[in-house]
Design a protein around this nucleic acid. Structure first.
Length: 585
DNA sequence: GCCGTTTTCGGCCCGACTGTTTTCAGTCG
């Protein structure tokens, strides 16, 4: 029996939800399982242990039935109910749910009538023209399935933040310059600063919605038009990214923006709260609702802030809207004052041509100056990263000297901190000796090889590095490359505890391919007193722009200005780095 | 299947768009 993890528990519940849908079960029952999966994934604590101990009472959304099932699953590694459902379908069956345009009803029909149990089956049946013959299906549906299958092969279904953000800003500019647009904003997961983006959502306020949707469908950026109506239009860009436009009145705008920003889970919670206030909330406004509560007059709403205020809540910034405690905190007036891009004073963890960067030290420094930064940390690779032209001891000493000269001449404009991104070797020792590390202003310690160690060994390895007095911060904790490579196994709880105990900073690597450590861990780390640094890992000047994605992740992790080293003023950073590690706070 | 400061039963979010329909089901968000 493989080890039971949080993911196992959540996946089993999610699969049950899908299978129940296929069987036409009561939709509310299906939803209960799906919500159960969400609760398990987002639970703040050791849900697996709680399930093993049959200690799940009191967790909202997990009733008797789910508690019993989770307990069975956690203790025995299997769930009879789940296995019975699954046994009726092939192992490849769940892939079908990823096909655009196919939901439980259509998948059930395809399976029952044509025996379709995999993507390959679906392709064969569609190409043979058998799908179009089914009741409720037609030629167009079959064509759409084939197109979706082709697209699935050609494109990723999710996009990195930089690609999504770039497209969104471009389209937003176009929308805002349209004469019939009063207000425009992007919503969805991009506005929430999720680490990857499925599609883009735009909301416009206009008196002429149909004119806007037609204009949107005709954009030269549109590779194809997925749907076009009087108030809604969906197009696909030529990189495969889907963009949805909703055109609403100015009065509806805040509601639509709130609604389409999501997350779905946040909105469900918000709507249920509205009902308790005697109000029904949807994407167009408040209406009288709720069964037994006497409602007052429908309040005036001009912006999103008014929506939250009406429900007795502080304004909840989009990044926090994941139903992970933000509504409760807003209710108690306990939301953090989140960090802003303007709070940044400098940046650490940047590369130059000395290792694998594409710009020289001077070029990086000039770019940092242009950005208005007060200090810049250089951290080129160490010698073990030979694939990245890592510096040996002699070259590092030369670079330190070069930085000292810069500071002597131009330190009052931009102060450069001499650092190193030193490799954490397989046994947890570092790639440079302590006496050399001691000559640096700071170090970023990172894993760049031996990714396949088991979790216990990897965690021990990283902890050994953190215990070194010269390790200022930990680079990209899990080594994940979003949409490309999974994180290596590492125990976040233990790393966070060690970071707190040893005063080691954990970076937020804001390369859009990384965004590591994951935002879901930051609130816990912050509460334990762990400091972070928002690090662009820039290999060329334009990559300083990654800082804004790091800010998004920090905000998503509930972080405030004071939780982040590079919001400190220069003097304070010098003090911090000049204080022995065990006496930093 | 979950929930409850009127409820232990009867609610649980719902509107837009498409395609296959002859009045609506399915999907998506």
């Amino acid at each position: 029996m493989s080890e039971i993890t949080r993911e196992t528990l959540a996946n089993v519940l999610e699969e049950i939800a899908l299978l129940l849908e296929i069987q036409g079960e009561n939709p509310f029952k299906t939803r209960a399982y799906r919500q159960g999966a969400e609760i398990v994934s987002g639970f703040d604590g050791d849900i697996v242990q709680r399930a093993k101990d049959d200690d799940l009472t009191g967790i909202k959304g997990l009733g008797d039935a789910l508690q019993q099932k989770l307990h069975e699953l956690a203790t025995t590694g299997r769930l009879g109910f789940h296995e019975k459902l699954r046994s009726q379908y092939p192992a490849t069956f769940f892939d079908l749910f990823e096909i655009e345009g196919l939901g439980p009803k259509k998948i059930a029909a395809l399976h029952k009538e044509l025996g379709v149990g995999s993507i390959a089956d679906l392709k064969t049946a569609s190409e043979a023209g058998n799908v179009a013959l089914l009741a409720g299906f037609g030629k167009k549906t079959e064509q759409k399935i084939l197109a979706a299958l082709a697209r699935r092969e050609a494109f990723a279904d999710r996009f990195l933040l930089d690609a999504a953000s770039h497209a969104a800003e471009m389209i937003l500019d176009r929308l805002r310059s349209h004469p019939e647009v009063l207000r425009a904003q992007y919503a969805g997961s991009l506005r929430r600063s999720k680490e990857t983006i499925g599609d883009l959502d735009f909301i416009v306020a206009t008196a002429k919605p149909a004119e806007l949707t037609a204009w949107f469908a005709g954009l030269d950026l549109a590779e194809s038009v997925i749907a076009q109506g009087d108030t809604k239009c969906s197009i696909r860009l030529d990189n495969g990214l889907q963009c949805d436009l909703r055109a609403v009145s100015s009065a509806q705008f805040p509601f639509a923006l709130q609604y389409f920003t999501g997350s779905k889970e946040h909105n469900v919670a918000l709507r249920s709260r509205a009902l308790k206030h005697g109000l029904s909330l949807n994407e167009y406004g408040f209406t009288a609702g709720g069964k037994s509560v006497q409602h007052g007059p429908i309040p005036a709403v001009h912006d999103e802030r008014d929506i939250y205020r009406t429900l007795g809540l502080e304004f909840i910034p989009p990044e926090l809207r994941e139903n992970r405690g933000e509504i409760e905190a807003a209710d108690e007036g306990q939301l953090p004052k989140l960090v802003e891009l303007e709070n940044l004073r400098g940046t650490f963890h940047n590369h130059t041509t000395a290792s694998d960067g594409k710009a020289t030290l001077d070029e990086m420094a000039e770019a940092a100056l242009d950005l208005g930064l007060r200090y810049l940390g250089i951290a080129d690779h160490s010698k073990a990263s030979f694939q990245a032209n890592g510096l040996d001891e002699r070259r590092l000493l030369e670079q330190i000297e070069q930085i000292r000269i810069w500071n002597k001449n131009r330190g009052d404009e931009l102060w450069i901190f001499a650092g190193s991104e030193v490799d954490i070797l397989k046994d947890g020792s570092l790639d440079f000796p302590d006496d050399l590390l001691a000559r640096l202003d700071y170090t970023v310690a990172s894993v760049h090889a031996s990714f396949t160690l088991d979790e216990k060994t990897m965690t021990k390895r990283i902890i050994r590095a953190m215990e070194n007095e010269h390790v200022t911060m930990l680079g990209h904790l899990t080594g994940r490359l979003l949409l490309r490579r999974e994180a290596y196994a590492v125990n976040h709880d233990k790393i966070i505890d060690c970071a707190a105990a040893t005063n080691t900073i954990i970076e937020i690597n804001c390369n859009p391919r990384r965004l590591d450590m994951d935002w879901r861990w930051w609130k816990k780390a912050r509460d334990k007193g762990v400091l972070t640094s928002i690090n662009p890992d820039a290999h060329r000047p334009e990559q300083f722009q990654f800082l804004k994605f790091g800010i998004g992740i920090a905000r998503k992790g509930w972080l405030r200005k004071e939780d982040i080293l590079n919001t400190y003023e220069l003097d304070k950073v010098k003090d911090y780095l000049g204080t022995p590690k065990d006496r930093r706070s």
